[in-house]
């Protein structure tokens, strides 16, 4: 049974020029949205190394949101295009590895779209809430539980041997 107090944990990577600024605008406009997203600022969505997304998931994020400038609007000409290309393949890879589509999302949000920050975050939080926890750290621990009885028996044996030596 999932914990009724469970709240989705979402890590976001926002580009400095568009989506981070849009999130600032959402703040200045006092829009209210779900508190589940924690934003990491990068200069460009092109800096989002797929390792960051996998690492966030592996460390316990239930979802990852990437925000960049609209195509054609990148502050660095085409950084967001490179993100889009990586993202397409990464989505296929994640799909093959059992991560649901809605957990990892790429959104183009321009500096003036504070309202869209709110909309995207609220929508994503609800989608991830419906999917339930990903909680990979717990899954990793569950997977490794199959080794514990052997490890314990080895430790037990070692203890016995040590006692024999001391005796």
């Amino acid at each position: 049974m999932p914990d009724p107090n469970w709240q989705p944990r979402i890590v976001a990577f926002f580009c400095n020029w568009c989506t981070y600024t849009a999130a600032d605008l959402a703040g200045v406009s006092r829009l209210k949205y779900a508190p589940n997203v924690r934003v990491i600022r990068l200069m460009c969505s092109g800096r989002v190394d797929p390792q960051f997304i996998l690492d966030a998931l592996a460390r316990g994020a239930d979802g990852v949101l990437i925000g960049g400038c609209h195509i054609g609007d990148c502050h660095y000409v085409e950084g967001n295009l490179k993100t889009l290309r990586r993202f397409q393949m990464l989505k296929r890879l994640l799909h093959d590895l059992g991560i649901e589509d809605q957990r990892v999302r790429l959104e183009w949000i321009s500096a003036s779209e504070g309202e869209r920050v709110k909309m995207v975050i609220n929508e994503m939080v609800e989608q991830v809430r419906t999917l339930g926890p990903l909680n990979l750290p717990k899954r990793f621990a569950d997977w490794d539980r199959e080794m514990t009885s052997l490890e314990e028996s080895i430790r037990e044996k070692e203890r016995e041997e040590a006692e024999v030596v001391h005796a």
């Binding site: 990068l42 200069m43 092109g46 800096r47 502050h75 660095y76």
Partner: peptide, 30 residues
């Protein structure tokens, strides 16, 4: 922009102010 940093397949490009370690530690922190 850091696009090349994210793309370097052997992790040999780094970015001042946005080093891999800095971002990984932020991920862990958030």
């Amino acid at each position: 922009c850091g696009t090349c940093v994210a793309a370097c397949p052997s992790g040999s490009i780094r970015q001042n102010l946005f080093e891999d370690e800095e971002i990984f530690s932020e991920i862990e922190g958030v």
